[in-house]
Amino acid sequence: MSSDDQYGGSGAGHGEIGGTGQTRTRLPESSSDPHGSPRRTPRASRGLIAVVGVVVLLIAAIAFANQSHTPQDPPPASDKPQATNPTAATGVPPVDTKSAGIPKGFARSEQGAQSAAANYSVALVSADILKPGVRSQIVRQVFVTDKVAELETRLDRAYGKAFLDQAGLDANGNAARGLTYISRTVPVGTKTVSYSETTATVEVWCTGVFGTAGIGSNNPVSNDWFTMTLTLRWADNDWKVESFAQKDGPAPVNADRLISTAEEISKAAAEFGGFTYAR
């Protein structure tokens, strides 16, 4: 997203100090009285000294102003290529640990609850949730302990053979050879419905891409818009899911875009990594 902000400043005109003033010094005249004391050379006028002092201070002030408004030179360019870093969460405090590939250790705050809800939405609507072996790890990481057994049963039933067959996947949740199953969720925003130090309900507005890419796929990849509602509980020094629900929308008008080929979608899914989210 490009920024439309433009930075500019009004250039301050600097007046030139010119015109060299000449000060005539009147030499002492010789006394006409040969016996008189010689006249002393008069001292410089105090008014002249004051004027010179003011001019010096003015010049110093202009020089200081010029220096303070002069942009510093940019650091010299390096010939070494800039190192790339993986996208990291930016919560307070930052979430920098994972379990089963899912961030953990969220802050006990409203921001931490929103961050947890966004990350858990990504995990719960991912391709890995369809793989029985990985699904068990996700459930144990995301849900409170007393809900794990119930949720494992519900998800095993929801993602049983009938669902896998419809999606063109085998019993282990894998696509046929030459095909790529894609299920990637992207949170667009979060909203706190209720919050306390022990419980929170957060809505996560999501979009995503879902389907099987490849020649001969009966389940082409398409996009979707939906909202996840997660009820969280503070347990084991982290936010965990107690229950969740999903509903359609809000969905914007589809843009008039040329549909990519199955090969392009498969390549994009393989080359572009997913994100972790924090707020």
Rank of each mutant, 00 (worst) to 15 (best):
D5K: 08
Y7T: 06
A12G: 14
G13V: 09
G15V: 15
G21M: 15
Q22K: 14
T25Y: 09
L27K: 15
S30M: 14
S31C: 08
S32K: 00
P34S: 15
P38R: 06
P38L: 08
R40Y: 00
R40C: 01
R43T: 09
R43I: 04
A44T: 10
G47W: 11
G47Y: 13
V51T: 08
G53P: 03
G53R: 05
V54Q: 09
V55H: 01
A60E: 01
Q67V: 08
S68Q: 15
T70G: 10
D73P: 07
P74L: 01
P75C: 03
P76G: 12
P76R: 12
P76W: 04
S78T: 15
S78V: 14
K80P: 06
P81L: 11
T87C: 09
T87A: 13
A88D: 09
V92Q: 14
P93V: 15
P94I: 13
V95G: 01
D96L: 11
T97N: 14
K98P: 02
A100W: 02
K104M: 11
K104C: 08
G105V: 03
F106T: 00
A107K: 05
A107W: 01
G112I: 00
A117L: 02
A117E: 00
A117F: 02
Y120R: 08
A123W: 00
A123E: 02
L124P: 00
L124F: 03
V125G: 03
V125H: 10
S126E: 11
D128H: 03
K131D: 14
P132W: 00
R135A: 15
S136R: 11
Q137N: 03
Q137E: 07
Q137H: 03
Q137L: 02
I138E: 04
I138L: 04
V142K: 00
F143I: 01
V148C: 06
L151S: 13
E152W: 02
T153P: 10
R154T: 09
F163M: 14
F163R: 14
D165K: 08
L169V: 12
A171R: 13
G173F: 04
G173A: 05
T180A: 07
Y181Q: 04
R184P: 12
R184A: 14
T185V: 12
T190C: 07
T190I: 10
T190F: 04
K191D: 05
E197W: 09
V202A: 09
G211Y: 00
G211C: 04
A213W: 12
G216T: 00
D224Q: 05
F226M: 05
T227M: 02
T231F: 00
L232C: 06
R233F: 06
N237D: 14
N237I: 03
W239M: 01
K240C: 12
E242A: 13
Q246N: 09
A251S: 12
P252G: 07
V253I: 11
A255T: 14
E263M: 05
E263H: 10
K267L: 07
A270N: 13
G274M: 05
R279A: 09
